[in-house]
Amino acid sequence: MPAEMPADTKAAVRDMVTVKLPADSAYLSVLRTATAGLAARLDFTLDEIEDLRIAVDEACAMLLAQAVPGTDLECQFELTGDAMRIAVSVLTVDGVEPSRDTFAWTVLSSLAGDVDSTVGADDRVTVMLRKRRGAAGAQ
């Protein structure tokens, strides 16, 4: 990856990045740092980067509560020209979608805008969020 890209080619960025970490809260700070780095690559503003850092942290934290011990937390980032789509998933014990009646979900949906969750076969729970550069967020 070139260190510097001309501004006009940044709009054409379309990369997938997958980060896999132990499903352990000790790694939340690592994931926040990775999120900030990827958001900076898409020229998100400092405020938007901060929002994404918190949103990813909340998505992971709500999944860690029901993660099968010893498994991995998988975080998939899809970088397009002006947006980032993030899917965080973990194998869970109960296969239950995160409650939406929590501070964590309030924060997540306020900062990311576009948020959803699903439960797959094998009780893998996924939280998806999408943030567009320049979109109005919670102030």
């Binding site: 700070s29 926040r32 850092r53 918190i54 942290d57 909340e58 934290a61 929590t102 501070f103 964590a104 309030t106 924060v107």
Partner: peptide, 9 residues
């Protein structure tokens, strides 16, 4: 430097 919903709780 950072606080999330768990911290607020």
């Amino acid at each position: 430097s950072f606080c999330d919903a768990a911290g607020l709780t």
